[in-house]
Design a protein around this nucleic acid. Structure first.
Lengths: 139, 139
DNA sequence: TGAGTGTATTATATCACTTAATACACTTAG
DNA sequence: CTAAGTGTATTAAGTGATATAATACACTCA
């Protein structure tokens, strides 16, 4: 429940990972999902740092990675803005998904799972989730 | 190609991850895949350390994690041996796969992918792999 | 002009990881 | 019994990534 609100965004930080990485990943998700509109200004480094109770340098680190990803553009004296290129966002989302998928499959195969078995596991979990989503999730 | 042979096992180590974690994961894979037989003795801490050009403490760290997993049993003065319980190995393999799957799905969903889209991505990649496996992998 | 931007710098502290050098208790082959 | 080989524990040191703190600078805009 340790959630922090920053503008329209919600962040959850813990100690299991570097803070700047958690900020980075959650910003990436928000952008990929369109929770932040194209061209929109994101919170300033200092504002974000204050809201998350984190050092400005840590936020700056995350923001610089976002720019390396091509997801943001920084204008000195103005702030940091989401790219206006819908194509760039979609491409980045696809690349990230492709990496996740490749890593997942590689790790499953390192445990001796075949393609068919991996597909079957995913399908089974999907059906389980469907049950939990309908009513099983309730108390 | 920086591979190291230790008995019947092959290890690949780099600097992108803690050494003890790489040893741990590759041992887990070897056990899960049955590349080491149940009850078999694995290389001694010192032998493994020498072969991998790594400190004995680092190998010991990995071996202690393996025992925490229930995959090995240590006998003082004799060495470290793979568990004789086939059930334990199979259960651990399932648990590991379950964790990988849950994490993968969670990360895909954080990018806005639906269950159907995730399934479709996996299926597409499977077919790609099939092509590369038949002949596309050749030069 | 002044407040708000991103950025850079220097310093300090902490933590995980790795290596090194020993030492101890145990088991087994000789 | 002895010696070599087991896992394990301890202490020390060094490294690198991470995070914080305190400043400072250049830029933009009302």
């Amino acid at each position: 429940m340790d959630e922090r609100q920053v503008g329209s965004l919600t962040f959850r930080l813990d100690l299991s990972q570097p803070l700047y990485e958690q900020i980075l990943k959650q910003m990436r998700s928000a952008i990929a999902k369109g929770e932040i509109a194209l061209g929109e200004k994101i919170p300033s480094v200092r504002e974000m740092a204050h809201a998350l109770k984190v050092n400005p340098n840590t936020v700056s680190h995350a923001y610089q990675e976002l720019e390396r990803d091509g997801l943001t553009e920084t204008r000195r004296g103005q702030g940091t803005f989401i790219t206006t290129s819908r194509e760039r966002v979609q491409q980045f989302r696809r690349e990230l998904a492709e990496r996740l998928l490749a890593d997942f499959v590689a790790q499953m195969q390192s445990l001796g799972y075949t393609w068919d078995e991996i597909e079957h596991c995913l399908h089974t979990k999907k059906k389980e989730a469907a049950v939990h989503g309908r009513n099983g999730g309730a108390l």
